[in-house]
């Protein structure tokens, strides 16, 4: 009988699950809907559900060069810092997974603990350092800070991937006369590409949505989308349709990245404690 349930599906569980899922997704759906309304329709009572969709908000947002400026900043920060993270993190994760020493465990846990340092605890010194180095409102500062705060997560995630690889393959290639660099580039890299890709994806997601440093260290020049969206926090009823359109564009790529990588995210977000 229970086998039958497993085959056919569970109607009660299905109903509860779908209801919850729809409730959880509703704010996003409502925002998507609002992005296709005119500004007047967006604040209309009773709320409009069926209407003639317009693309005017999207057109306006692209017409204002500003949106692209902020979007570009988001791309530059997430991609830049993720690449840097990988350049620094991959060798370390490789070394720890393949040539563990007595201190490896300690180093990994120490790296995890640096991630626990609350950003606000170092807000003042970072702000002052950036001011003195002329890095306030600069992409460089945000790229470096994002890279440093994601490095522990990246190393952990990569370490988990490297550790689960067959170690013998390295032995074999080294016996064949390959040096460490050759092993790394020609033998291992292709094997671990999926791991590196999901680490990169998680890095991009985290950077893209990072708000604390973006809000505190940027004004306009280096402001990413998180900060740009915050500027819509103006009086009620103003530009809601435009806010919705800008938000939809801002979250769409990351939402898709998140859907693709949900499995790997779990091991990354729990430091390998759950997978």
């Amino acid at each position: 009988m229970s086998y039958g349930i497993a085959k056919k599906g569970h109607p009660v569980a299905g109903t509860i699950a779908w209801l919850t899922a729809l409730v959880m997704f509703f704010p996003i759906a409502w925002m998507l809907l609002a992005s296709f309304k005119t500004e007047v329709q967006a604040v209309q009572t009773p709320p409009l559900v069926i209407f003639k969709p317009t693309l005017i908000n999207y057109r306006d947002i692209f017409a204002e060069a500003d949106y692209l400026h902020f979007a570009w900043n988001s791309v530059a920060i997430s991609v830049g810092s993720t690449i840097l993270t990988l350049i620094v993190g991959v060798p370390a994760a490789f070394a720890m997974a393949f040539y563990p020493t007595k201190s490896t465990r300690g180093i990994l846990l120490w790296m995890l603990s640096t991630k626990m340092l609350p950003a606000v605890g170092v807000l003042v010194p970072i702000y002052l350092l950036c001011r003195d180095l002329g890095l306030l409102d600069s992409l460089t500062a945000l790229i470096v800070i994002n890279m440093l705060s994601n490095l522990p997560i990246a190393v952990w995630m990569l370490f988990t991937f490297f550790r689960d690889l067959p170690k013998d393959i390295i032995e074999a290639s080294r016996i064949d006369g390959a040096n460490l660099r050759q092993v790394l580039v020609h033998v291992l890299l292709p094997l671990v590409m999926p791991g590196i890709a999901s680490t990169a994806l998680l890095g991009i997601i985290l950077c893209w949505n990072e708000a604390f440093w973006s809000l505190n260290l940027t004004a306009h020049n280096a402001a990413p989308l998180t900060a740009f969206i915050a500027s819509f926090s103006a009086p009620q009823g103003l530009f809601w349709a435009k806010l919705s359109a800008a938000s939809v564009l801002a979250i769409a790529p990351i939402l898709i990245f998140g859907w693709i990588s949900q499995k790997q995210l779990v091991s990354g977000l729990t430091f390998g404690a759950v997978k």
Partner: peptide, 8 residues
């Protein structure tokens, strides 16, 4: 999905 929406 909500987890991937930026906080602002």
């Amino acid at each position: 999905s909500p987890f991937f929406v930026m906080p602002t």
